[in-house]
């Protein structure tokens, strides 16, 4: 299968402090990868660096996304190329409605593909279709982006956005945290419905529970900025029952 992303010996730091200390990871089309790891190990840092957040400094290594040098691209170019990050902490944007936000985003994507902007009616139809995937009330669309949304609603909104943008590679950073059982099922079903042989997903999670719904092909454990273990889906179960200590000891 085609390599969507190839991360080689990636080092990154923030405020002079090295957080990622040589990440190697390749994701192929059709795959689901899970990344687990203790708090502070660098999971969100990895996703932010891949999405192009500017306050991180990449100090070494390379990232190739669909044959292109990802690290040279701006955040919006990465999105246009098909990368999507579901934020661990989605940002609230008071004064910008969800509908205006997503319409602008969708139309910018279309512009990149030389497609005309969607009409209001076309957008509405698409939006309703995608809102249904995450069982979100259309009333959310007229509210400020994530403003006053509950934790779970914010996470559903991330998956809604993913559905609207139809990415090749989605990185979902703890999309399951803070979700009740029903919301977890809805979000996981959403992700599964969007799965195709052409795209891939990286789910970052602390809990085996999510992986019962979104079954990973490969599980990685990240610790202190390095992937210390890569295995099949049974690794998640093992982490759940035994914690991380044995893996850390094994690697050290």
């Amino acid at each position: 299968m085609e390599n969507l992303i190839e991360i080689k010996d990636l080092h990154a730091s923030i405020n002079g402090k090295e957080i990622l200390k040589g990440i190697n990871l390749t994701v192929k089309a059709g795959e689901v990868h899970a990344i687990m790891g203790p708090n502070g190990s660098g999971k969100s840092t990895l996703s932010a660096v891949l999405a192009g957040k500017e306050n991180y400094e990449v100090t070494g290594g390379s990232v190739t996304f669909l044959g292109r040098n990802l690290l040279e691209m701006s955040p919006e170019e990465r999105s246009w190329a098909g990368l999507f990050l579901g934020f661990q902490y989605p940002i609230e944007i008071p004064g910008v409605t969800n509908v205006n936000f997503m319409k602008t985003a969708v139309n910018e994507h279309r512009k990149q593909n030389n497609l005309p902007a969607l009409t209001a009616a076309e957008y509405l139809k698409l939006m309703r279709e995608k809102l249904a995937i995450v069982e979100m009330d259309p009333a959310f669309s007229s509210r400020g982006v994530n403003v006053g949304f509950s934790g779970g609603e914010k996470k559903r909104n991330e998956i809604f956005q993913m559905a609207m943008l139809n990415p090749r590679l989605a990185i979902l950073d703890e999309t399951d945290s803070g979700l009740d059982v029903d919301a977890l099922r809805i979000v996981a079903n959403g992700v599964n419905k969007l799965k195709t042989p052409q795209n891939a997903t990286i789910v970052i999670t602390h809990y085996q529970r999510l992986l019962d719904y979104i079954v990973p092909d490969i599980v990685h454990v990240l610790y202190k900025g390095r992937i210390i273990k890569t295995s099949g889906k049974e690794l998640a179960l093992e982490v759940e029952s035994r914690g991380y200590d044995w893996l850390i000891n094994e690697s050290e």
């Binding site: 192009g52 934020f87 940002i91 936000f101 985003a105 943008l165």
Partner: peptide
């Protein structure tokens, strides 16, 4: 900056 990054990560260009 956080709002800008969030929007840009959805493909909204910096100027927009």
């Amino acid at each position: 900056e956080d709002e800008l990054f969030y929007m840009r990560s959805r493909g909204i260009s910096y100027n927009e």
